[in-house]
Design a protein around this nucleic acid. Structure first.
Lengths: 358, 358
DNA sequence: TCCCTTGCCGAAACCGGTTTCGGTCCGCAG
DNA sequence: CTGCGGACCGAAACCGGTTTCGGCAAGGGA
């Protein structure tokens, strides 16, 4: 009769209001109350109202895991974090989490998060959560080009939403910020300041956003009638160090640019360093423009002109989208994009005439 | 018969291995299998082994929410984050979360997190999670002096563990880093370098750690036979700006110190700024020592001498402790402390003779 | 030999919901 | 007046576990 450990006290009988209590109070049966609460049409409007009022009054909240045993759903969103990535994820995380959790809780849902280091553990983590029914769907941050998580969930027929887009949109709902539009506007902004030789430092190519932002940059150049010099383009810069290296390469070009567009703020800050090492004053000799809106950008010298992304809003939107997805709304209505917001600070300025004579 | 939305497909019948399957395969009943899995002593050793083997072989994993309906427990840890706080929480968060989630998942538990902005929403969030039975216990990061969360959970008789200690230890399990020991060692380190006038910038007084670290500093001064000048002590510095202000006050003292101990790294970096504004070279004219081990410290000029806290390990430990707490282990065995690790870098150096003549 | 433990397991109730299947009442056409 | 189809709700099964209670057989003491 004894378990190996101490016998645990019952916790569920803690004077909880159950569906039976509500039913008794109204002289109805559990089944009627259940269907009324769930809005079934075979319960009259009048009864539905009566039931919902009484439930409210008595403080009845259906136990999600009691429902889950039959429905298989527990009203919780899954979020699997990967920490093997570069540090860029850190400032991002807090805001994002706040948004997701806020979005979930306003709908009465909760968030279960898991983290993995290893790349292999990733899929295993998803499987474990699904096996235990701990999440009804997943939010996938940082969409990759050919995302293994998408393959897994698509095959398992589990709802998910991406932060970022996906070429093969089958089964994909998403929320994304229009990085391509931002890159295009960045070029326009610089061209408007008189810059004609403009470099581009892209982010990690494994990410879905990289190709988009590259396209945006190219489109901007085309619209402004500017030529793209492949020597002024770098890839895969996601950290400050990456950015410094990439900018160094670009600035050491025989015919260097007077401005650089960066797909990632950290890379932009790295470009600051490369500029300093070459005696270039950012904002005067060299204009730099970033993307992300990390707090460090505002404190940099000079403050970084950038396109800010509201990660909290993104998290909120993703939570809402996923909930609607789990509820069965059609995919087409669950794809949203918003523009980044341009933040003009002091790292971009008119092309300096001295350097142009070079 | 129709729900308001689209009828959702059943998900639970997805060829899941249930306890009945295992029972049938062994010619036993559900109840026997259940008790065998849970290690009840009224099931023979032999049968327990048979059952567990078969469960393993068939891939049987009990559904936590099916268990929960009777036991009230779902094998999940709760974590409620507050974002109204200062930004200092950010670098902390990712590592901590990784640790908690790793600790939970190695035990087969999961983590449900929620976030609140408002101070009032905090308690409400706890209540909602408890009401829905979404967590069996809570991890409380950043213990406050008279923590309202502790009051709530103590009264509700819900298990919890603190990151930080608590004066009234009733019902409290915790994990903490010995900040007082670090402060004491900081003074010793500086005294060993010849410093005799040492300032102290403390962190937020609402936090439980503040008093401890202040004590540690005082004890260190006493042990080294140094006098404490109240004019060289400041409180409530948790951000860089706070630290700059506090350090300014201390450095503008008629008889300024040659070294400052900071209870928080951010404050230490603020002290850098104040020092620079007064033409003092950190590490030569003024020694500064911090606590936390934030990444920014390593990149500061000069790199910051500090006491590093392993937040990932802390998260891991807290998860493990909470699980044991929920399982019913006695409180006394669930209080752990570890020392911070001293990281000697370049912001501390021997007392410069020039300044001492002043 | 008989009775009483003790060890071990089965039968059935139970947890808090959802869902299937009827059954009653009513209005209305035949 | 009868038959019939909705509208609306109750009865009972069910979901996947846990727990209570009791039964049976083996073993030990009197």
């Amino acid at each position: 009769m004894e378990a190996s450990l101490v016998r645990l006290p019952e916790r569920n009988t803690r004077n909880r209001v159950t569906i039976s209590h509500v039913a008794d109070a109204l002289g109805l049966t559990k089944s009627t109350v259940s269907r009324a609460m769930n809005g079934y049409s075979d319960i009259s409007e009048a009864t539905q109202l009566r039931v919902k009022r009484m439930a409210e009054k008595m403080g009845y909240h259906p136990l999600s895991h009691a429902q889950a045993i039959k429905t298989g759903r527990t009203r919780s969103l899954g979020l699997v974090l990967q920490f093997a990535d570069h540090d860029a994820q850190r400032p991002f995380l807090a805001e994002f989490l706040a948004g997701v959790s806020a979005g979930a809780s306003t709908e009465g849902w909760t968030l279960t998060v898991a983290a993995t280091d290893s790349h292999s553990g990733l899929i295993e983590t998803f499987r474990a959560i699904l096996r235990d029914g701990k999440a009804d769907g997943f939010i996938l941050p940082r969409a990759l080009c050919n995302d293994p998580r998408v393959h897994l969930l698509r095959k398992a027929d589990v709802p998910f939403v991406l932060f970022g887009r996906q070429d093969n949109a089958e089964g994909c709902a998403w929320f994304d910020v229009l990085g391509e539009e931002a890159m295009q506007d960045a070029v326009r902004h610089l061209a408007g300041l008189g810059h004609r030789r403009i470099g581009f430092i892209n982010g990690g190519q494994q990410y879905a956003y990289a190709a988009l932002r590259a396209d945006g940059f190219a489109e901007g150049m085309r619209l402004c009638g500017l030529d793209i010099d492949e020597g002024l383009i770098a890839q895969n810069a996601v950290t400050l160090e990456d950015g410094a290296r990439a900018a160094a390469k670009i600035l050491d070009h025989a015919n260097p640019p007077t401005a650089i567009v960066c797909a990632v703020d950290f890379a932009a800050l790295g470009a600051y360093r490369a500029a300093a090492e070459r005696g270039l004053s950012v904002g005067r000799d060299l204009s730099i423009i970033g993307y992300d809106g990390i707090p460090e950008g505002a404190f940099a010298q000079p403050p970084l002109t950038t396109f800010a992304v509201d990660n909290r809003a993104a998290g909120h939107a993703l939570a809402t989208l996923l909930i609607r997805r789990v509820k069965g709304e059609p995919l087409e209505t669950l794809r949203k994009t918003v523009p980044a917001t341009f933040v003009k600070r002091d790292s971009t300025g008119p092309k300096s005439p001295e350097r142009s004579t070079k």
